[in-house]
């Protein structure tokens, strides 16, 4: 795909994001689009947000569970960039009016205290370089019509990232078994689903190592202080005005979030 088209598609996503409107999947319009093209479109989309004043504060890893990989027909995760306007604090109410077709996922977030420079990064390096882990919610959102995504569509669309909130309780990864830590997700005080760290690439640390190595190949920095959302441990949760979600990770603690307003779709 030539740069002109890449820029055009990236700009289209940025406009859809601003207008809270959806666009047709790129894979419908350009069936030959590659994953590499898709990441270039993502870069353009994010560059537009950075040009408008946002800062890059971290990364998200997506497509980390076997059922989702099987569904999309891929055998590796994908990633997107976290920007400063995506951040909510625990206790904030998330305004659904700012989103298009949101769904929530419960995850474990990593905050780095050292740079991670791939290639050659292992899960052991990830533990060493991690300041702390914390339960979090990612509110995924798609600028692609009806979530009709193939892997190239979601990658171009910044891995379908919407906003996120990180819980205030945290743990040193040396103090908790992040692979075996159970995750309990409640919606409006009722059990919604349960999960475990191992659902994410065998261990959330594996997903972060994959990201470090992938970024290393692409020459994208992965710096101390960055936040990494390591991948969903729950089913996707539909959310509407008034909903409250709580996720609790065994050995760490919980993160809660409330929603208000109405999304575009």
């Amino acid at each position: 795909m030539n740069q002109e088209k890449i820029d055009q598609y990236g700009d289209e996503l940025y406009q859809a994001f601003l207008d809270r409107k959806t666009i047709a999947p790129f894979t419908e319009r350009d069936p030959d689009i590659t994953l590499e093209d898709a990441y270039k479109i993502q870069l353009r989309f994010i560059q537009r947000r950075v040009d408008a004043g946002e800062a890059i504060v971290g990364k998200k890893i997506g497509v980390t569970s076997k059922p989702v990989q099987d569904f999309l027909g891929v055998f590796q995760p994908d990633f997107g960039q976290l920007t400063s306007n995506m951040v909510y604090q625990e206790g904030d109410v998330i305004d659904l009016g700012g989103l298009i077709q949101p769904k929530a996922e419960a995850e474990l977030a990593f905050v780095l205290k050292e740079d991670l420079q791939g290639p050659g990064v292992t899960a052991m390096d990830v533990i060493r370089a991690t300041d702390y882990v914390a339960p979090c919610f990612e509110i995924v959102d798609s600028r692609i019509r009806d979530w009709k995504i193939l892997i190239q569509d979601t990658v171009a669309d910044n891995a379908s990232c919407g906003v996120y909130v990180i819980g205030s309780c945290k743990a040193d990864p040396r103090d908790v078994d992040i692979t075996m830590a159970g995750m309990v997700l409640e919606k409006n005080s009722e059990l919604f689903s349960t999960g475990v760290g191992a659902a994410v690439q065998g261990s959330p640390a594996n997903a972060v190592a994959w990201l470090a190595n992938t970024l290393g190949e692409l020459g994208i920095p992965f710096k101390a202080g960055e936040v990494i959302l390591s991948g969903s441990q729950s089913n996707l949760v539909p959310v509407v005005d008034g909903d409250e979600l709580v996720c609790t990770v065994g050995g760490i603690g919980s993160c809660s979030v409330r929603f208000a307003g109405r999304s575009a779709v």
Partner: peptide, 27 residues
């Protein structure tokens, strides 16, 4: 221990066949 949030992974012949947390049992 926290009886609610115990993570569980079941493997058969080296392949993961079940995952969850203990709250799946009546909370």
């Amino acid at each position: 221990i926290d009886l609610r949030t115990l993570g569980v992974v079941m493997e058969k012949n080296g392949e993961v066949v079940g995952m969850g947390a203990s709250a799946a049992v009546l909370g």
